[in-house]
Design a protein around this nucleic acid. Structure first.
Lengths: 183, 183
DNA sequence: ACCTAATGATTAGGCCCCTAACAAAAGCAA
DNA sequence: TTGCTTTTGTTAGGGGCCTAATCATTAGGT
């Protein structure tokens, strides 16, 4: 589900032209911004096409990965609230994601004997098997996407992306999904 | 509407650890991939927050921009099919976008006297005024987002993003929205 | 104990985007 | 002209994500 975006990015000369009409328009910033959005979109599209072929969405994949046993070894059981917090969606959305994953037999909900409000979401053997069958192609696509960049360029790339992302979350902080904590 | 994504990106050491369990996992590629998605998400979020404050979506904004008179001077009138093609959504989606834009008085549909299948979509004076009142803050946010990068870094940034995007669309071509042209 | 506040999960309703199917109009072949 | 085929815009239905409201359970203050 790519963000709606211009099919053909405007040329830099066009942006220069536009900047004459809009004093606030920074041509090189706009160009970098558009390239960032388009590259992110393209990368997302490539990964999502693979997911869709297996009736998976980005959201469902993230949930499965969170429940996937870490290298440490022990399997993961998380509550819907924890899953929502760690994957950056609302609890309401997580309800829907777990609904479909449970319907497809990938995860199970279990009531918590201690706190009867909570549930415990776990990966089923079928979910584990599914994920493991999916990951090789997933990683292959990621490797292919980044193949035009050598190790040095990748370091530079990560550094630049990190700067922009940090600036975004500092200058325009994201609203907190849970309680606003208005202190 | 950010893509669902891990709140905290895994550390590079963790990716190295994971690569032992998955031979296909390329740690530096995964890191760059995750940074790209997150930076794209953050940038999108910053821009979208501004849009939402004015009851605008990325899709509706793109349509308004396509209808906005270019520096050349003459106003733009496009058919829904042209709008869909240039903004990368389906015609069905464009119908909905133009529906809401017309309801809000931003654009008008006019029948084409020559080809009675076609419509002509134009910006209304109100739509033009609205767009012009919106753009300064829009450009301000883009400038702010890219402010941590100097001109030199921006050129590098654009070059690296361009490489990745080009690789994505070549290695995994996007399906054509219109006729598949199965030759 | 009692009343209130906070927390967990869910439901209801909305927006954005998609695919598939459709009717109307235009183009084209025989 | 009559019959395909293509193109245009639309509708119908679905999925993903959101916010706001709801209900049950737990925790805290008195």
């Amino acid at each position: 589900m790519p963000h709606l975006l211009l099919k053909d990015l405007p040329r830099y000369e066009c942006l220069l032209e536009c900047s004459k009409h809009f004093p606030g328009l920074d041509p090189s910033a706009c160009e970098a911004f558009l390239y960032l959005l388009r590259a992110g979109d393209e990368a997302f599209r490539v990964i999502d096409a693979h997911f869709q072929a297996h009736d998976l969405s980005q959201g469902r994949f993230t949930v499965l990965m969170l429940l996937f046993e870490k290298p440490s070894g022990q399997p993961h059981a998380l509550t819907p609230a924890q899953l929502a917090e760690q994957s950056g969606v609302t609890r309401a959305t997580m309800t829907g994601l777990v609904d479909t994953l449970e319907r497809d037999g990938m995860v199970t909900r279990r009531p918590d004997p201690v706190d009867r409000r909570q549930l415990s979401v776990e990966l089923t053997p079928r979910g584990l098997e599914f994920l493991q069958s999916l990951l090789p192609e997933h990683f292959r696509r990621i490797s292919a996407l980044l193949s035009p960049l050598d190790e040095n360029e990748r370091r530079t790339f990560v550094a630049l992306l990190g700067k922009v992302a940090a600036c975004a979350s500092e200058t325009f902080p994201a609203p907190v999904h849970g309680a606003p904590a208005h202190t």
